[in-house]
Design a binder for these strands. Structure first.
Lengths: 223, 223
DNA sequence: CATATTAGTGTATCTTATACACTTAATCTC
DNA sequence: GAGATTAAGTGTATAAGATACACTAATATG
């Protein structure tokens, strides 16, 4: 194998991705079971080393795809973790990203570096490799804060969704129940939703109108 | 010189620091003139390579002290810049920090890697090395946003200050003038200030009461 | 002693956020 | 198919917070 030499020590750089979705009525996060040491067989965030010619965001998307098969998520840089001893092998600095995807995303498939891939409820995480628990906690705080001043929550919705489903997502992330009428007033006042024209199918109650984003893929800031 | 070899390419990692203060009635930022290539003689943010056993924040504080002599600032991680070609020498990933200090801080003194150190008005920046203009623009946006939901502005104040001086700082960062009575009502309602008991000296008008932080060094979040 | 300069103070109005309950449309069960 | 069950859908009154606004007070200067 080739070796790469430098005049002074260089750390390795990785990206790690905290991908959230909503499953049932819980916030869930995607973890992989590590195939190799260190922390072999431990659960960890997907992620890996930055290639020499790719930018950080591309690395995060590539690692997520390689290890879990998931693509097309909303992705945002979170924080860079760099304590000298956070990896037992060598100095590794990790640029952490958080990502959001609708729950109807294709089921994850374990890739090369992962023995297993699974969604875990945020409130029932297993022991985690490295400092990945810190990463997840910070990501969840960011998500909750951003709910108040942006439209991040829409990235957790399928292409069409009901206002009830959207309210549920807000309630899960904020950890408190919301008034239905006030919530709908607020959301509709943003003028970011359009009625799809369809209604919900196959529910044992009055079917709700389906909405879609007026400008899909755009993150808006409120206030 | 020793060489350090790895099985696959490692990027270099630096920190860069965007240190803001208020000078006169302008937002100002500290720049150094680079002593060595690349971008020799260009203005740039202070910063430098992460030592193998120091954490990222320590690196930022050390580089700031070494290159400019300034210590004791408020420091917060901003964003990590990692485009593959952002440095012509080799792959360099930079963890950017922004920092705040009161204007009465000791004058900066050029250190080893800096031929010169100077404050520049934010609205009159020179040409900058690397992607440092992007860093500064992002830092200013973060500062402005954070003004609304935290007490960052207090980090720009001297130990004691008048409400008029504090209002001036808010006006400069927000780029608009504020109503005096409403501003005072808002600031005092936070219950974070204590009267020092002293008043301003040597001004050719009614002297203002001096205030200090009730809990110095603590950042508070509003709302 | 008149002028200039900034400090310091209160209220009325507008805007936004909150609290709150019933009717509707579908499915399910007996 | 009648009644029960479930979530959808809708408006108003009140409370809280944000905004607009003008004069008097204390010091220095000429």
């Amino acid at each position: 194998m080739a070796t790469y030499c430098y005049d002074y020590p260089h750390p390795a750089v990785t990206t790690d991705i905290a991908l959230f979705t909503i499953i049932g009525d819980k916030l869930a996060i995607l973890l992989i079971r590590r195939r190799s040491p260190p922390f072999q067989d431990s659960w960890a965030l997907p992620g890996g080393f930055v290639d020499s010619d790719e930018c950080l965001e591309d690395c995060a998307l590539r690692e997520l795809a390689e290890e879990t098969g998931i693509t097309g998520v909303y992705l945002e840089q979170l924080y860079t973790f760099g304590k000298p001893d956070r990896d037992p092998r060598e100095r590794i600095i990790s640029v952490a990203y958080y990502a959001l995807a609708p729950a109807d995303i294709l089921s994850p498939i374990a890739g090369s570096d992962a023995a297993e891939v699974r969604w875990f409820a945020f409130d029932a995480l297993p022991d985690l490799a490295f400092d990945h628990r810190d990463v997840i906690v910070l990501a969840q705080q960011r998500l909750r804060a951003k709910l108040d001043y942006s439209t991040v929550a829409f990235s957790l919705m399928a292409e069409t969704f009901t206002l009830g489903e959207l309210q549920k997502v807000y309630e899960i992330i904020r950890g408190e129940s919301l008034d239905k009428r006030n919530f709908r007033k607020y959301i509709l006042s943003l003028n970011l939703l359009a009625e799809s024209g369809e209604t919900q199918q196959g529910c044992n109650h009055r079917p709700a109108k389906l909405y879609r984003l007026a400008q899909p893929g755009t993150l808006h800031y409120i206030r």
